[in-house]
Amino acid sequence: MNKVLVRFEEGLIAFLLLAATILLFTNVILRYVFSNSPTWAEEVIRYIMIWITFIGGSVCVRNYLHVGIDIFVSNAPPKIKKLLMMLAELVSALFCFIITYYGYENTMLVINTSQKSPALYMPMWFVYIAIPIGSFLMAIRFGINAWKTATDRLDDNNDKLDMSTL
């Protein structure tokens, strides 16, 4: 299941980055060479970047790339360090679940009000749903990280710390 999720996240991000790059390049050429660019291109790029941000957040959690203040954790004794790491991961998972809930509520409001994007007239729920999906994926990843910390399994290549030293 993890491999499927990893492939989905990384494949989606790669595809979206490629699409945004091609679209941006084409838009720049059309604007500056031909003095004519599509009105919808900037909107699509903005929406693609929103999706990349929220799905990329999950990839960052998986690879321990989120910014954190770890001065207390770094200077704590090994058992306290493990406890603090688990607590931080569980609080982060809880926060992401809260964002998932409110993101879902917000998406449902957008669906019920039938909001459309200004240039494409595309349903705006397609953009807003990136929030609960990305937050849910981050929450799952934080939960997995907390489990790895609790069971001393942080020794894979993608993991931040080798818990066998604790």
Rank of each mutant, 00 (worst) to 15 (best):
P78L: 11
K82F: 08
K82L: 11
A88T: 02
L65W: 11
I80M: 15
L90W: 02
K82Q: 14
L65D: 06
I80Q: 08
L84R: 05
V91T: 10
L94D: 04
S92H: 02
M86I: 12
A76T: 06
S74K: 12
A76I: 08
P78E: 13
P78N: 10
V91F: 04
I80N: 13
H66G: 09
V67I: 11
L90F: 05
L87E: 02
H66E: 14
K82Y: 09
I71E: 05
L87Q: 04
V91L: 15
H66S: 08
F72I: 10
S92P: 05
K81R: 10
K79F: 15
V91W: 00
L90T: 04
K82E: 12
V91M: 05
G68P: 03
G68K: 02
A93G: 14
K82H: 11
P77K: 12
L87R: 03
P78T: 09
L90H: 01
G68H: 03
S74V: 09
A76R: 08
V73S: 06
A88F: 00
L87P: 02
M85V: 15
I69D: 02
V67G: 01
M85R: 07
S92Q: 03
L87T: 05
I69R: 01
L65Q: 12
L84G: 05
D70N: 06
L65T: 06
A93W: 01
L87F: 11
I80T: 13
L90S: 04
F72H: 06
A88S: 13
L87N: 05
P77E: 07
L83P: 03
M86N: 06
N75I: 06
V73F: 03
I80F: 14
L94N: 05
L94H: 05
K79N: 15
K81M: 08
E89G: 01
P77I: 13
L83C: 14
I80Y: 08
V73T: 12
K79A: 12
V67F: 01
L84C: 10
V67T: 09
V67K: 00
L90V: 06
E89F: 01
E89A: 04
I80W: 10
L83N: 14
A76V: 06
S92V: 01
V73P: 02
D70P: 01
K79I: 14
L94F: 14
L83D: 08
L90K: 02
K81A: 15
V73N: 03
L65G: 09
I80S: 15
N75D: 13
K82G: 13
I71C: 05
S74C: 10
D70S: 03
L83A: 15
N75G: 15
H66C: 11
K79Y: 15
N75C: 11
E89S: 04
L65M: 12
L84F: 11
L84Q: 08
A76M: 08
S92I: 01
V67M: 04
A76Q: 07
G68V: 03
